[in-house]
Design a protein around this nucleic acid. Sequence first.
DNA 1: CTGTTAGCGCTTTCAA
DNA 2: TTGAAAGCGCTAACAG
Lengths: 334, 334
Amino acid sequence: MNRKRVTIQDVADAAGVSRQTVSRAINDRGEIGPETRARVLRIAEEMGYRPSSIARGLATQHTGTLGLVVPDVANPFFAEVARGAEHAAYARGYNVFLCNTDEDPQRELAVLRSLEDKRVDGVLLCSSRLDEPTLRAALAHHASVVLLNRQLNGDDFGTVLIDDKLGGAIITRHLLQRGHQAIGFLTGPPASWSGRKRMEGYFETLQAAAISYNPDWIRPCAPTVEGGQAAAQALLHDHPRLTALFCYNDLVAVGALQAAVTLRRVVPESLAIVGYDDIPLAALVTPALTTCRVRRYEMGLQAMQLLLERINGCTDECRRIVVQPELIIRASAP
Amino acid sequence: MNRKRVTIQDVADAAGVSRQTVSRAINDRGEIGPETRARVLRIAEEMGYRPSSIARGLATQHTGTLGLVVPDVANPFFAEVARGAEHAAYARGYNVFLCNTDEDPQRELAVLRSLEDKRVDGVLLCSSRLDEPTLRAALAHHASVVLLNRQLNGDDFGTVLIDDKLGGAIITRHLLQRGHQAIGFLTGPPASWSGRKRMEGYFETLQAAAISYNPDWIRPCAPTVEGGQAAAQALLHDHPRLTALFCYNDLVAVGALQAAVTLRRVVPESLAIVGYDDIPLAALVTPALTTCRVRRYEMGLQAMQLLLERINGCTDECRRIVVQPELIIRASAP
DNA sequence: CTGTTAGCGCTTTCAA
DNA sequence: TTGAAAGCGCTAACAG
């Protein structure tokens, strides 16, 4: 089906020039006569010549490939980030390796290593779950790195962050304004940095309003519908007086919605529920979720653009992007 | 930050052997003394040596990379397929390039070409929107190809298909059994092959039951919530006597659900609605959607496994997988 | 403007 | 069992 590929040498022979000249023609370097150029290009085209990125990569030490590491592409959050990232990369002629970590640190390490072996020009690492020293070590051999949704101080990495503390504050303030005083908090995975930041926003807002809270109102949970369902059920069982639930993300909030049905708590009358992220689902469940919108596609796009700028030498200014979340009020916590 | 990479030569020098011997050690070929092997391996480890896939790829003509082409990763259907595909690839030590086509044939062509330049070992192409001759030409230079959700006869491609005709029949039969006779059909994009297949199942089932249908009950629509909303609204306006709606996918069905609210048609009492795919959303909207489940993760996984088998020489048996959809009965059409 | 000479880092012969 | 030579397909550096 596929005979041997045509190489630069084949084209050179057919055109009666050296490989160099062919190389110059296809790379559009100046130093070549316009007619030679045109002729070589025509012949290359006719022969169906396609330069091998692999050979080119070996020669130039640039592969035109990038690594995108996410916990799980099937998670709507990262799916959109991935889409934005891929778009930005495509626009600049890069291809991207998609890698799932499944939230498994071992796998994250393995993936980072394989990307290293593939000699990617840069890595966009989303929501890393590795501890600081391990992460630093794993990234040491990568030329350019952008971290999304994970902070690591003092290193030469680009960073894209959601202002989650602000998000936590926005939501808490909204609930306080609607008269809620006993607000439960499902924080997501214990290792989640964004979960902790949202919690800070929650704490500070409550303290600023001089409202006391009970540490037992705060529970970790898997960042899924099932996780939210289980955690909400347990929390509301232990603390039936809670009038509102601040959920780690929209999936958790949907789980909480289900738990509310089971426990015969009417939302929002007897229990207000707030999510985070504003995934498409948030507007489609009943009641629709009040949530904090994060522009995921734009985040992925900007993160990848940042990475590309850094690859192309800009490492000073091109350092840090902070994305502001935005309160979206719907029926679950009007 | 990152000094020059250590090469096989560096390791060879340090160990006082030839590059060959190092190569043999790391590739676990037999022809090497066990103690040399151990020593070389230890030194390589100490020096932090990582073989360059790129150089290896040039030498062996195998890159250990695969292409995954999807219309849109942010679409939950393809996100899950991508996850399954990536898992299968990872398990066998391959990396996968993620490429979005945005349903744009030009972009699909461009992406297939760039994958060719990257010398991927194989391509998993999902829901190609290219016409037959163009598709054939675009795939001609790829060694191994698996097509998912797209048929192309007589060529040396692996194929993974959903039995959509069966799906269409299953749904239609269910609706007939519940006494529906006037069943509208929102078929999705006119170019969609799966839409046509589902329609065939619909037709045949109605004919077998000697039920007449009106061609005007069948309407195309964008495969989105908005598309479903608009199309359902228009269709129900023109044909208020319809008692059931067969929707191209769950997103369209959710749109239809919204249209029903607008038109004050209570679901399912005054209008039954059925979706397709069983995305997570389907179980979470109110009323929950009756739908046809397609195991997307497994599809992606199997498709990639098929591709890997074909790459490793099995091209006769390893040809075609047909996935059976499954009726999931929920509240929207009990 | 064009060609020649060296690699890029690895594997694959083929000898020793 | 080990090593030397040659080459994968391309570009960089230097001549001419």
